[in-house]
Design a protein around this nucleic acid. Sequence first.
DNA 1: TTGTAGGCGTTATCAA
DNA 2: TTGATAACGCCTACAA
Lengths: 333, 333
Amino acid sequence: MPRKVTIQDISRVAGASPSTVSRVLTGNASVSPEKRLAIENAIKQLNYRPSHIARSLKTSTTMSVGLLLNEINNPFYSNVARGVEEVANQRGYSLILCNTNEDPERELQYLHVLQDKQVDGIILGPTGHNVEHIAQLAERTPLVQIDRQIESNKLSAVLVDNEEGGYQAVRAFINKGHRRIALFTWHKPTIPTIAHRRAGYERALREANLPIDPTLVVDIPELTPEHTAELTIALLRQPDPPTALFALNNRIALGVISAISQLGLKMPQEVSLIVFDDLDFFAVVKPAISAVAQPSFQMGEEAMRLLFRQIETPDCPAEIVILPTELILRETV
Amino acid sequence: MPRKVTIQDISRVAGASPSTVSRVLTGNASVSPEKRLAIENAIKQLNYRPSHIARSLKTSTTMSVGLLLNEINNPFYSNVARGVEEVANQRGYSLILCNTNEDPERELQYLHVLQDKQVDGIILGPTGHNVEHIAQLAERTPLVQIDRQIESNKLSAVLVDNEEGGYQAVRAFINKGHRRIALFTWHKPTIPTIAHRRAGYERALREANLPIDPTLVVDIPELTPEHTAELTIALLRQPDPPTALFALNNRIALGVISAISQLGLKMPQEVSLIVFDDLDFFAVVKPAISAVAQPSFQMGEEAMRLLFRQIETPDCPAEIVILPTELILRETV
DNA sequence: TTGTAGGCGTTATCAA
DNA sequence: TTGATAACGCCTACAA
């Protein structure tokens, strides 16, 4: 097994000092054409690649950023990840992927790892916990929140207008004449997105002078399709069932759709449905499912751009970007 | 901005030499209880965290592995990623996420980055190119292929029995009396999975003494839903259309399902459908879509376990793990 | 423009 | 059990 080739080897072969080799590597200082050529040849010849680690130790910059997400296997987040990756890659940065599963302890653990590995920045879809730790961390390393913003802090964030998205969806229902509109929400008080979507729901009802009926909001503790479907079926079998259903995220939608299928209900004739967060399949299935689309890919891109701004300019003020949602009315409403 | 606290600071505060501090950090050597206590206190007091970079430079091990995938935003790959992450995290490893978009150049570029960052191992969903480079790389760093195996090499891999999966699906069609079974495949000669699935299709037909009709195989150049739907519609409008459709991956399925919806065809009365690769939504939608399920999460777990074995034992022989698929017959066949 | 020397924060070797 | 000392591979004053 050949020993790793280092800058010393290049120096020897090219007949130049290590510093000169380093100079052509980094490219900031000036080097005579002959030396440069000799060095470049030696590099090619020995198939030399600079050690990123040694470089990092010296410069204390790693060209990598942490990407901390709740569930990478949720299409929403995996599209965010794609967006982040796209712009990170363009600038030669790499991503350290961390998945929390909504587990605060795991989030904290990963936050430590990222700190230990001295990432140049962090993109964080927060669980909603570890608030103080995150605030402190952000003082030392650039950090931008994505999807959810911890209420108490004023760190940079890329969000979506959840309240307005929720409002528009319910507004669409009301315009179609619906009066009993059910809300399927996730019982997680630490997650602001859900709360904002729900606030939009309530605003639309209030504006239309409709009562906010607590029996129409289903607060789901655990997001399995089975569990959600069960609760949905129970609601739909009540004496005066809702005519419109609003599922607050794509995981909830799974259960709600399952319930509708099981009951054999026709959409939109017997129930209407809008899902917060659009999925590819919603557009091709019959009937095509209406959704509040979030620009997930762009959120990722924007978050990474924001992070770069923070990395590049030391005391960059925090920025909060709020992207619009798009209500896509298809065949279920 | 406080300077980073190092092992020197701990050494000073605890009244021990840096080497002793290092000893309690790594935990292999023996240290007297008093010193250990003093050091541990100092560590807590100064909130010290060892520099992973410095450690890596010294030990030339980074506790991170590269995860090189074709499209992280495809549910199949994002579930693989979750599986990989799960077992990597258990052992304190972190993941460098690389997305190729099926682009060989990008794959090569990322391979270089991973090498430069001296990852301890690589999990690779290969594009099918860069064959020699990968073979060479694998001599120096542990590497396991996932989902697809480059034909010419004998490196470790975690795969699925694509041929058998394809066979079973078509077999199910035949058992239901179908005679004209269309295949929707992706025109990418470098991808073995697709080829094997197709081989399974052909085996089932041959076995049932059915002709392999080239007009029934649709070779899709570009996997947009629109394009695929167009080709599907064209096929279904022919004089003697197929009665069963087999989509060879979830992206193709999108277009095929779109076509069926557009044509208003009833499943399974008017056409049957099986998709290779199962998605959450297939189970809840009406009619529920039949699929050949791949154990994507487990593939990720297994790949990471395999990689660990390679990392730990120097001359570990290559292992090839082939996981079974599961044919899930729902309502579309 | 070039080279020498020192250090980034650890760990490992060697004596004591 | 402990402490000097020397790397790991690179970058960067500083001096020439």
